[in-house]
Computed example of a mutant assay.
Amino acid sequence: MKASLAYSERSALRPYILVLSLLFAGSILIDKGTDVLWINGHHTPLLDLFLSTVTNLGDGLIFVPIIIMAMFIRFRYAITGLIASIAHGLFVSLFKRVLFPGMERPKAFLHNDLLHFVPGVDVHSTNSFPSGHTATAFCAALFLAFIIRNKVLGIFTLLLAFLVGYSRIYLAQHFLVDVAAGAVIGSFTTYIVWQIMELSNTPPWMSRKLTLPGGKKLSLPGTSAN
């Protein structure tokens, strides 16, 4: 089981390493502000609606249904998800409030006449680095990839996380460098917490799971029903 699990982890990590590398390279090569003007400038009413909705997947509350679902697989996974959700939030707050306080967002950095603001979206001006929504999205996506262990679903959750990051630039909330940093923080936190929990000697009850009414077990693609 450990060998199979390790293989699943490596398989899940490969596309993340590729995406994180591309985001990091883009944040270095593209001038700050140019990224926002290009992405935000290619706006349509349909994208306004779609991306203003997708961006909500980066809200911290997304972990509530994920942790509940994890409880039907292993209690250990639910605890891992809870710790990862708290840890990545603390890292984001440390960067925003202590290490890089008050960093300007696109609204304060760029002339507002150059930006498209989506109606109904509250656009902030400070605490730009890193993107908390992107960190949450990548943290949740990698965690789901680890517990579900299904390549197709893993790629799908990564795509959703990427779209959250893209939405933050489209909505003029962040720069590419903020999104890249958020993606790294979210992914790195999940990986570290996962490894610590998997290598720790946990009590037997943490290997148990919740069951559906009538004693039925929840079966997810790539997971064990035992």
Rank of each mutant, 00 (worst) to 15 (best):
R168T: 03
I73A: 00
V64D: 02
G215R: 07
F95I: 15
L142M: 04
N226S: 11
Y7S: 15
R208S: 13
A6Q: 05
A87S: 06
F100I: 08
G182L: 02
L99G: 01
T134P: 03
V164L: 06
W205V: 14
S4W: 03
C139M: 08
A84I: 06
R149G: 11
P65G: 13
S8D: 13
S52V: 10
I66V: 13
G58D: 09
D178I: 09
M1F: 10
L220F: 14
S128L: 10
Q195D: 11
R105Y: 04
P119Y: 09
N112W: 08
S207R: 00
Q195R: 14
I28D: 05
G214C: 04
G60M: 04
L94G: 03
H111S: 14
L218W: 03
L160M: 12
A135F: 03
N56H: 15
K151C: 08
F95M: 12
A12I: 02
E104H: 04
Y191R: 10
R149Q: 13
P213K: 08
V179W: 01
F91A: 07
S85V: 08
W194P: 06
Y16N: 11
F100P: 00
L47S: 03
S219W: 04
L18V: 03
L18Q: 01
I148H: 00
R74M: 03
V164G: 01
L159M: 13
I30T: 06
M206P: 14
L90H: 10
I185E: 12
T202E: 09
K32W: 04
F143R: 06
K216P: 08
F24M: 15
V92N: 13
V54F: 06
T189I: 05
F138S: 05
V19M: 05
L22D: 13
V54D: 01
M206S: 15
D35W: 07
I73H: 00
G222P: 04
G33I: 07
T190W: 11
L57P: 03
I17Q: 12
A78R: 00
L144A: 10
K32R: 10
H124V: 06
I73K: 00
P203G: 10
T211A: 09
G102K: 00
V118K: 12
A141G: 03
M103Y: 11
Y170C: 07
S219H: 11
K96P: 02
Y7R: 15
V121Y: 06
T80N: 02
T44H: 07
N127A: 07
P203H: 06
Y166D: 04
L61N: 11
S131E: 05
S167Y: 01
L212M: 01
N226L: 09
D113M: 12
N127I: 02
L22N: 09
P65H: 13
A183Y: 12
L22C: 13
P106A: 04
V179K: 09
A172E: 12
T202H: 01
I28R: 11
A180F: 12
V36T: 08
A225I: 15
F117N: 10
A108Q: 05
V98R: 11
P106G: 07
F50Y: 12
I68S: 00
L13E: 02
H133I: 06
S128A: 14
T134D: 14
G41Q: 05
F143V: 14
P204C: 09
M197F: 12
N112K: 13
